[in-house]
Nucleic acid binder design. Structure first.
Lengths: 220, 220, 220, 220
DNA sequence: AATGAATGAGATTTCATTCAT
DNA sequence: AATGAATGAAATCTCATTCAT
């Protein structure tokens, strides 16, 4: 009986916690950090402000929790190139998958808020940056290094080429969203943008790409 | 005499206006939009709040003015390739110049604020985005198209390649600054980063780059 | 069996009650009345708030209980003068004993709180005042009257001389503690302070003290 | 004209400040520190809370100001003994004057509040203690030392006798007030209480008092 | 009998903006 | 034209106490 009671209570409490997180996320996304009101959040979650504060000791902590949740949701693994399949496809799948996970994680709109709060929550910003950007970046470096080791790519400084790759993806699919509320990332259903981008990358770094030792970029 | 007085008055008024703008910029950069106080700005500018409001009808308008000023300060012209000189150099100079102007214009830290205020000043964000991102983007597209017309580059869709180029630059020199207060953009004194990036670009799009029609990126 | 259970339960209940009182005393002494939190008290006592409220219907009542307990702990009996021993010694012992009991009873730091809450708990303050001050005062008056009756002291208005005696003790050993947290009453290990004070008193009221009927305090 | 305007404005501002102080004092005396509400104070002073906070940066500061004002109002100078007049009278006048100034200064009821806040405003308590208790104490020591030097009093440790004197006064006229709201200090219109207390003191310390070197306080 | 999550009411404090001078 | 004191509305957070389990 006690166990049952406990379970029931626990369930209710967890439900409230979730309700709060949901309401808070909505409020923050709608209003940004400063303009979001704890009172409103409590109200939307059908909870008193006191209860809200029992669950999350401060607005800052509540916000951090939401950001953490979202950024934890962002997972990225560069898929292993499939033997015999075009290397290009691996890159495209990786880019598409990473992007999808990123967009699905709700991190993007939260990032706007985090960025705006940089002077007042530098630690949070740093942390978010690390979780999202570093994660993506490191996974990519690792994959590129592997591919070099396996002879797919020419040896080169992957710590910079990885950033080039990611930079292009961000520019096309993410950057605009920083400046526009309710921004929907441009679709790339036929995958042409990503493919173009990957081609640009592999044109330089694939072992199969032509040698350019003697090429000059001079005008003829 | 009156004219002289008028001139004097005008001068004083203009000086006050400048003092306000200067103080406000400092405040905003230090505290972000919401936490910057009109009273503090007035105080720093040695002006009463009433005078402040005579010059700028509201905090929002004052902020917009500052952002506009800064973004107007960001000028970018892709230099014409010099005949006989390596094409590469043109790109490097362009990238370096653009970046320098961007960083010097104070737009970067203001952008953080603009981004944070997106839900409350969507128009401002849109405008800033246009002035900065579009400007850079369009100037680059134009230059690339010219170079195609002049036979420097292979014909291709410059509306996307331009973004690739800019995306890589942003990733290396700008993105991190969005998440870190007092961020100093990484130096690139020897220009190696930019050069690597340009090489990647030209490897694919220079008319001198080897043909890759029959190249497959497959593993051998 | 039932009886045993009852006994057990009773024991547990009493233990909890004591735990609560102990925790509450600590809280109140540390934080004062207003800043002491019922939740904290319950927590420190390893009891739920509901249980806390089962035992003490309100914060006020809980506090009153603690003050009562402490002030009941303060016992003072003026020791009978020992025949043939210096009267002085009786007074010194009395003063020392009274002071010791007072300091040991924890009343002093609680008094600070009681005093601060005078406007909100006038009854409690009155009661505490009576229990502590009156008690001390009445015991002293009684002893002095006895000593007059027994021919130790000159006849006089003991209702005022008793207060003089106590007033001097309070001034030296208690007053400062009202204004300083963690105040430790000045030690008087050699008893010189108390002895001086007692001498002052007996110089005027002892039957052995010289007559002063014809003394004028005029400067010669 | 400007000067006049300034004067007018200054006058108004000062008046508001005084209104606030008055309202605050009343509120604090009525409700103690914690229960006094800044909103209520503002309301009583016919001022908005914002104005209240312009004048006093915080509740704590406002309270400290009031205490300081009151304690500054407490002045005590032990009057010089008049040549040829009974020394007794000097002491009685001194006691009466000191007491009157103390009671008139409003410090007494504020002291209750200060004492209650000791754990949370130790500095304020210390300061108040110094201003009131030390001041009284030091002035008395100085006067006693002078009288010793001038041959009115027997040489002795005045740092303790001064406290005896003050302790008796406090006991009779002040102590009770700590525990009772709206307490009116007992009158002593005929001066008999003070006279009795002074006699007790001089009986021991006046140069004219009989020698007690050979007196034993033993029961005969 | 015991729990502890939930509450409602209120506390202090801030800020963009106005208006009498 | 300029001042700066005054404002009203709102924001975050706390606490003694209750009630469903």
């Amino acid at each position: 009986m006690e166990a049952a009671t406990d379970t029931y209570r626990t369930t209710v409490v967890k439900a409230k916690r979730q309700a709060i997180l949901k309401a808070a996320r909505a409020q923050f996304l709608k209003c940004g950090y400063t303009h979001a009101g704890m009172t409103d959040i409590a109200c939307d979650a059908d909870v008193s402000t006191a209860t809200l504060y029992k669950h999350f000791r401060s607005k800052e902590i509540l916000f951090a929790e939401i950001v953490e949740q979202a950024s934890d949701h962002f997972k990225f693994d560069f898929p292993q190139p499939v033997d015999g399949a075009p290397l290009e496809d691996s890159f495209c799948v990786a880019a598409k998958t990473g992007l999808k996970s990123f967009l699905a994680s709700d991190v993007q709109p939260l990032m706007r808020i985090v960025i705006g709060e940089v002077p007042f929550a530098p630690e949070l910003a740093r942390e978010t940056f690390k979780r999202v950007t570093h994660h993506w970046y490191n996974a990519t470096i690792g994959a590129l290094d592997d591919m070099i080791a396996q002879g797919y790519l020419k040896p080169h400084d992957t710590s910079i080429s990885a950033r080039f790759l990611i930079g292009m993806i961000k520019e096309i699919f993410i950057w605009d969203g920083l400046f526009h509320a309710n921004h929907v990332a441009p679709t790339d259903d036929d995958g042409r943008k990503i493919r173009t981008l990957v081609e640009l990358f592999l044109h330089r770094y694939s072992v199969n790409s032509p040698d350019t030792k003697n090429v000059v970029w001079l005008r003829s």
